[in-house]
Write a protein that binds this DNA or RNA. Structure first.
Length: 209
DNA sequence: TAGTTGATTGACT
DNA sequence: GTCAATCAACTAA
């Protein structure tokens, strides 16, 4: 019950403005660290790892070659959720960042579970340790109940199912971008950020920094 | 139309 | 460390 009360504080929480998202992904991405991804059913986790994908200048971005049915949401208004299906089985979740039409977004790679942890465990019954519930982009979508049905929903305005909110914790200081994980092109761009020392960050020990 | 890849994970050696 | 799962999107022809 304590958990449920805490979740009610997070949800709907203090919403982030559309202007917050309406900036280059590389500027927005580290500012998303320590914000909270919250679901209407009470599940919530602190964002501890992100990667920026920067539209037409980024060969690793889905939007690099222009607009397609799959990536159309990325070209839409900032603050919306772009959810895509990959490796035949996994969903990954991005927050669109502006300016509108540029195809920029931020991949949310890891959360530190805060609330609704029992529901996260139920969604990932084979996960032995809570540390791993949201450690990785496809794990967190499964734990939070995010799938293609949520592609395109508004994280700023309607707040009907999911939202990214500010609960007062500032992003970490001394942020340094590192290279992104799991891509074959655009490897050298330092567009990945994480909360230093946080155990819920994905990747190997050397990648976690 | 056929072949390859992928913003990953989990199981296994 | 290696590798299979599994399919939508993309690329080449």
């Amino acid at each position: 019950m304590v958990e449920k009360e805490a979740a009610s504080i997070i949800w709907p929480g203090k919403p982030l403005s559309r202007a917050f998202y309406n900036r280059a992904a590389t500027t927005l991405a580290p500012r998303l660290l320590n914000k909270v991804l919250a679901a209407a059913d009470g599940r919530a986790g602190r964002i501890v790892e992100v990667e920026a994908y920067v539209g037409a200048i980024d060969p690793a971005a889905h939007t690099y070659r222009g607009k397609t049915p799959r990536n159309a949401v990325m070209f839409g208004p900032p603050g919306h959720m772009y959810v895509y299906f990959t490796y035949g089985m996994h969903w990954c979740c991005n927050c669109v960042s502006g300016p509108q039409g540029d195809g920029c977004g931020v991949l949310i790679r890891a959360l530190e579970p805060l609330h609704g942890i029992a529901q996260m465990r139920a969604a990932r019954p084979r996960t032995a340790h809570d540390r791993d519930l949201c450690r990785g982009p496809a794990r967190l979508t499964q734990a939070m109940g995010i799938s293609g049905a949520q592609n395109g929903i508004d994280l700023v305005g309607a707040h009907d199912r999911f939202a990214i909110v500010d609960d007062g914790m500032a992003p970490p200081g001394d942020l340094v971008g590192s290279t992104r994980i799991g891509i074959s092109r655009g490897k050298d761009s330092p567009w990945r950020w994480s909360v230093p020392g946080n155990r819920h960050v994905s990747g190997t020990a050397s990648q976690r920094g």
